[in-house]
Amino acid sequence: MAWEYVVNGINGAIKLVVNGDPELVDIAIRSVKVSGIAAVLAAIIGVPVGVVLGLSRFKGRGLLKSIFNALLGIPTVVMGLILYLFLAPAGPLGFLGLLYTEMGISFGQMLLILPIVISFTVSSIESVEREIRDLALTLGANKIQIMFKIVEESLSGIVLSIIAAFNRAVAELGIALMVGGNIFVRGGGLNTRVLTTSIQMYVARGEIDYALALGTILIAIVFTITAISNYLQKKWVGYD
């Protein structure tokens, strides 16, 4: 029974993709776009924070690190609910007009995955920091040069953290649903339906086959992005 569903799901996914179902294409592209933007934003903020946290030594650094580590596991529904309350027009951030928009989802997912980027960046910095610092120092590098070298050496770990962050964003439901609202108007320009929200909707409507087909596509996207990043890393960062 369950296996039958899985096989049907994969079959259905292939059919949908081959037929280029326009609704599906629209939703899948939106998923990648919204979570991609979230990952880029999280990287812009999280990598510098992680680098500073990884390189510097100050009081409260350990506490800060454990806070970010704890936030790694924050439940997305809780996050979604809090964001909903903040972003609702009557809420403190209501003036931004982000509720039930793509940007709103990106913003929420960015907050969700920021701890991933920060924590993973910190640990990849720390894993190379000591050796590289001593080496660069004795070879005559100044503080800024050393910093850049450490970041360069941690780059594959940092890229990995961004990919992991993207994967979490694209696969989460709580924020996409509560902040996004699963809005879909045929031909509309402000839709917010993404893969996860449509999966839950089709499950609620009892259309399990279609939901599984979408699930298969979601998994395929996650795998593909990871594979591409691995390939690019080998090619660009190279030598490792």
Partner: peptide
């Protein structure tokens, strides 16, 4: 300039 016992290579 120091050369370490464990030869750490940069990428």
């Amino acid at each position: 300039t120091m050369v370490f016992q464990n030869p750490v290579m940069f990428k």
